[in-house]
Write a protein that binds this DNA or RNA. Structure first.
Length: 879
RNA sequence: GGGAGCAUAGCUCAGUUGGUUUAGAGCAUCUGCCUUACAAGCAGAGGGUCAUAGGUUCGACUCCUAUUGCUCCCACCA
């Protein structure tokens, strides 16, 4: 049967994925084997696969498949994250398209819509992962808002509250006026933004009335002047000593405010006078606390001025800014406007400019948790790869602030705090328990009088439990509970593969939660991948439209090709510059494997024939080189050098196996292959497919089934990875010398226009042994290798050396050209020898360098001397 | 403003406690080949003052200092 010269992934991928699922090959249950577990970084439930996911999940799949073949009970737990703010924003948007405002719905109605959206779109991303070949245990798929996982979040909240680590307080938070929620410090992105520095005149009060004297303050936010509580100067600032104890008037609204002194004010910035607006700036808020200033909040949740602003009521903050500048100018309060660029906080999710806003929020005290989590890394129980992230990690852990865990959203776990009519509250896991607790405070309370907090918890407050809750949702919040069978077996997980930008959001917090509830770290190795960027170095993003659709790539090139393409260019922690040519390379590699198979498949076996000499030698060599490569690959994996491991397998297959081995054992056209060589070749192919399988699961499964008969239900996944074996460096070196001779001969053929079909005689100096001559003969079409006393008798020809062995091919040459070449060689070696001799004549070098280094230099000296001698003889002959 | 990291071939990167003949790989490039597994291929070749300047050392791509350029993280100078 004719097989296509091109590998067609579409024909195999779905077939094998179904096969794996059908035979439940990804499913894991605790047993007597050593466990190997990974929890997936749960993607946003309504998200779609992007290149970063491809990278990330390919790496995880490589690790999991390899562990499985290494005899571990491998379990990769998939799942999705409810991503409260992102999902809620999407749902709100979808409702808006249908003309429905969120505010017109009750909480229950909204959640119903959200769940509908989740059912429709949730899990698309998991289906996409299947296309990639991800060997997740789908029976264990979890969602951070599954009932039992939500319960574990609530239990955790109650636990920390009762432990005194969760508190409620008025704080200046980062308010997202579009998402209408507080966001954590980590969710604020500071961008350099062009704005203006407005210099405003505040008239000084005399007897309670504005005088004609004024001071100038500089501000970027003139729309907040109505909320000013004071003007502040540095007590050291002699320019303003005359202002001490005086008062000034806020322009436009003519409100009298005091001048206060605080060393926070920089004398050399702006005018040295700072307007203090406690409600709308975090620093001003702190100054306000120190000086007991009143707080006037003039901006509402949408970022509009409220009635307390007295003017421009209802205007958006940015519109108000333009208008008030005009009003100030008209009223003679505007001194000047300067261009100014400063960092402005933007919401990571909605990109709205963050408004510092005072509000009542829930916080988790972080200090103790962070101290322990820092130890986990510093004492080596968690290893970050690459380890340079240790510094970043430490910095964050040492400067951690309390975590604002409440969000003014509906999509998420509702905070289990229940308010009594008198304003007191109780925190309990269920309404019933809360009601009982409330009765102890207010014995006559009615059920309907007890109101649950409206807010939900930050998404990370559920995802930090992930490595525990996916196995046993009862455990978080209950450090004393017995872990169930799964948790006891799979926890702690082994490796975590994630992006460095969530090292703090997620990784650090998972360590904290696990330390608290499990008494140990949730994983041993954290492999931090790079961020996938386009060729111009831009982050892949939907907005830029520079992210290719991974599914289209898979359709076009095949999943194996995409995986290889990603792996080849991924070194840990370094950004990945995506280029489609990498995937083409992956596709070409699939094709190469496919064609190697086609070759072996076409062979007819002769059971009575003996192996040819080159075949025998090639088998012997490949056995050794395979063993050596396995050792190299294992070493790369132990250091998480996944791209190096990929490259090692790639070269082993393409260069060693195809370019050298198969060429050496290939029978002459029309002839059969002997049984021994054939069986060996198939067994090598089998080993190679196993080594390749973690990287390219589909083509390897397909070919593994084709190279030998298999029984139903059999899979390459269930096979043991080829084991590391001792190997002979000597045999490898001998083959390499033969290969070097082959390259030289091919080179001579090309430069002298000799057809590869024309066989040649190869001469070697008497007394020099040629190892693996049969390989040389076969691969460079040499009819005979002759030992001779002197090449001069053979007439014209070209010399070459492998090591110090001299070879000669008789061929017509241009004597001048040859001489020039030889002279160049002589010059090169002479210089080299000079350098070596200089080194060796240096007493200090000889006495202080280690013995082997000196010995090496002496060997260099003698080898180069020998080469020069040969070259000079050759030159003589040409004269 | 503080911190971290990077700088090696046209591109993407290795270079594992300073010594392994003349610094490696993949891709790309160039040359010759449609050689019955594969042109998505085969066979060859070229290409680097290891960012710059000093220093330590018998010896530096590797260690130190400074400079330049880039990246990321953190941060309250209005």
């Amino acid at each position: 049967m004719e097989i296509s010269a091109k590998y067609n992934p579409a024909e195999t991928e779905d077939k094998w994925y179904s096969y794996w699922l059908e035979h439940k090959l990804f499913h894991s249950e605790p047993d007597g084997r050593e466990p190997y577990s990974i929890v997936i970084p749960p993607p946003n439930v309504t998200g779609v696969l992007h290149m970063g996911h491809m990278m990330n999940n390919t790496l995880q799949d490589v690790l999991v498949r390899r562990a499985r073949m290494n005899g571990k009970n491998a379990c990769w737990v998939p799942g999705t994250d409810h991503a409260s703010i992102a999902t809620e924003t999407k749902v709100v948007g979808r409702l808006k398209e249908r003309g429905i405002e969120k505010s017109s719905l009750t909480r229950e109605q909204f959640l119903e819509e959200a769940w509908k959206w989740k059912e429709e779109h949730g899990g698309i991303i998991l289906e996409q992962l299947k296309k990639l070949g991800a060997s997740c245990d789908w029976d264990r798929t979890k969602f951070t808002m599954d009932a039992e996982l939500s319960q574990s979040v609530i239990n955790t909240f109650v636990y920390f509250y009762k432990k005194g680590l969760i508190y409620r307080g008025v704080r200046m938070v980062n308010w997202d006026p579009v998402g209408l929620t507080a966001v954590s410090d980590e969710e604020v992105i500071h961008k350099q933004t062009k704005s203006n520095l407005f210099h405003l005149r505040y008239f000084i009060s005399e007897n309670g009335k504005p005088s004609d004297k004024y001071i100038v303050i500089a501000t970027t936010r003139p729309e907040t002047i109505m909320a000013d509580a004071a003007v502040c100067i540095n007590p050291e600032d002699e320019r303003y000593h005359y202002l001490k104890g005086k008062k000034v008037f806020i322009p436009l609204i003519n409100k009298e405010i005091p001048i206060i002194e605080d060393s926070y004010v920089a004398m050399d910035f702006g005018t040295g006078c700072l307007k203090v607006t406690p409600a709308h700036d975090i620093n001003d808020y702190e100054i306000g606390l120190r000086h007991k200033l009143p707080v006037t909040d003039i901006i509402d949740e949408h970022g509009r001025l409220n009635e307390k602003a007295l003017i421009l009521i209802g205007e958006d903050r940015f519109v108000a800014r333009k208008k008030i500048v005009k009003m100030l100018e008209e009223a003679g309060h505007l001194e000047k406007i300067e261009d100014y660029t400063s960092p402005v906080g933007h919401s990571e999710r909605t990109n709205a400019v963050i408004e510092p806003r005072l509000s009542l929020q829930w916080f988790l005290k972080m200090e103790a948790l962070a101290t322990d989590a820092l130890k986990s890394v510093e004492e080596g129980r968690v290893r970050l790869i690459p380890d340079r992230f240790n510094n970043t990690y430490r910095h964050w852990m040492e400067n951690v602030r309390d975590w604002c865990i409440s969000r003014q959203l509906w999509w998420g776990q509702q905070i289990p705090a229940y308010y009594l009519p008198n304003g007191e509250f109780v925190v309990e896991a269920t309404f019933e328990e809360a009601f009982e607790a409330a009765k102890k405070i207010e014995p006559n309370i009615k059920r309907e009088e007890l109101k649950q907090d409206e807010d939900v918890l930050d998404t990370w407050f559920s995802s930090w439990l992930w490595p525990i809750s996916v196995f046993d949702a009862n455990k978080p919040g209950r450090p004393d509970a017995e872990p169930n069978r799964d948790l006891a077996y799979y926890f702690p997980t082994n490796d975590l593969v994630t992006a460095p930008d969530i090292l703090f959001f997620w990784v650090a917090r998972m360590i904290m939660a696990a330390n608290e509830f499990m008494g140990k770290e949730p994983f041993t190795n954290v492999y931090l991948t790079g961020i996938v960027r386009d060729k111009q170095g831009r982050k892949m993003s939907k907005q830029l439209g520079n992210s290719p659709d991974p599914l289209e790539l898979i359709a076009q090139y095949g999943a194996d090709a995409v995986r290889i393409g990603m792996l080849l260019c991924s070194s840990a922690g370094n950004d990945i510059f995506y280029d489609e040519s990498q995937i083409e390379q992956g596709r070409n590699f699939c094709n190469k494997i496919w064609n190697a198979f086609r070759l072996t498949r076409g062979w007819e076996v002769d059971d009575s024939a003996n192996p040819s000499e080159p075949a025998r030698l090639a088998v012997e060599w490949f056995e050794n080189t395979l063993a050596k490569s396995i050792a190299t690959i294992n070493d790369h994996f132990s250091k998480f050098r996944i791209s190096d491991a990929t490259m090692a397998v790639y070269k082993l297959f393409w260069d060693e196996f195809c370019a050298w081995y198969l060429e050496a054992v290939k029978p002459v056209y029309g002839e059969k292959i002997d049984r021994y060589t054939y069986d060996k070749t198939i067994s090598f192919f089998d080993s190679l497919l196993k080594l390749l399988h973690p990287f390219m699961p589909f083509i390897t499964e397909e070919l593994w089934h084709q190279i030998a008969p298999r029984e139903a239900g059999q899979t390459i996944m269930g096979e043991a990875m080829p084991a590391q074996k001792p190997y002979s460096e000597e045999i490898i070196a001998e083959f390499n010398s033969a290969a070097e001779a082959v390259v030289n001969i091919r080179n001579i053929r090309q430069s002298k226009n000799l057809s590869p079909k024309e066989s040649l005689v190869l001469y070697v100096k008497n007394g020099e042994s040629v190892k693996m001559g049969a390989i040389i003969s076969k691969l460079s079409n040499i009819s005979q290798i002759c030992s001779v006393e002197d090449f001069a008798q053979q007439g014209n020809g070209v010399n070459f050396m492998v090591g110090t062995t001299e070879f000669f091919i008789p061929v017509k040459v241009n004597a001048d050209e040859e001489r020039a070449k030889i002279l160049a060689e002589i010059e090169r070696y002479t210089k080299f020898l000079e350098g070596v001799r200089k080194k060796l004549s240096n007493q200090k070098f000889v006495s202080s360098a280690p013995e082997n280094v000196v010995a090496l230099e002496r060997k260099k000296e003698s080898d180069a001397t020998e080469k020069l001698k040969n070259l000079n003889e050759l030159l003589q002959r040409l004269k």
